[in-house]
Amino acid sequence: MTRQRWLLAAIGAVAVLAGAAWRQIVDDGGSSGAKLAGSTLLALALPDVSGREQTLQQWKGKVIVVNFWATWCEPCREEMPRFIKLQDEFGGKGLQFVGIAIDQSEKVQRFASDIHLNYPTLLGGYGAIELSKSAGNRYGALPFTVVLNRAGAIVHTQLGPVKDTQLRSMITQLL
């Protein structure tokens, strides 16, 4: 009898947990089910710091990590040295980081030079914030990171700093 009660309580707990998980997914409001298609992101043309228009299409076939950032965003600046290391380590194996800066060109150039940025960064402006919103970044906050697999499909989006171990594990699986 006691065991039956325990089982009923456990089943109840599972039901509550399942409900919580379901609510969390429903509350997501399309965050993980991003409306933005990888092909749209790849086709996007944005100027680089020298003013030349670039598209992400040129890196299709690689694992692309798109990082929305700005010099006015301290958490963004803090995580970029980790991206530099990963680009160094996995660049030869088909990994390509691309920054999209929500910022002014001269500030981006100065910061990129200061930290010896080893991957391209494009200038996004306010339009890029809207773009990140369509990828599930509801409030347009930074940093926001989008990972695309070799086929050009979005496989992960992350608001806030990405944990090094998490990104490293994802990259090695995708490469």
Binding site: V14, Q24, N137, T157
Partner: peptide, 22 residues
């Protein structure tokens, strides 16, 4: 079942972080 649900909740942590934002 609990392990599976815990894992689902873990995967939704990035979403939860966003959900917490104003």
């Amino acid at each position: 079942a609990v392990a599976s649900i815990t894992s689902t909740l873990g995967a939704a942590s990035a979403v939860a972080q966003e959900a917490k934002l104003l």
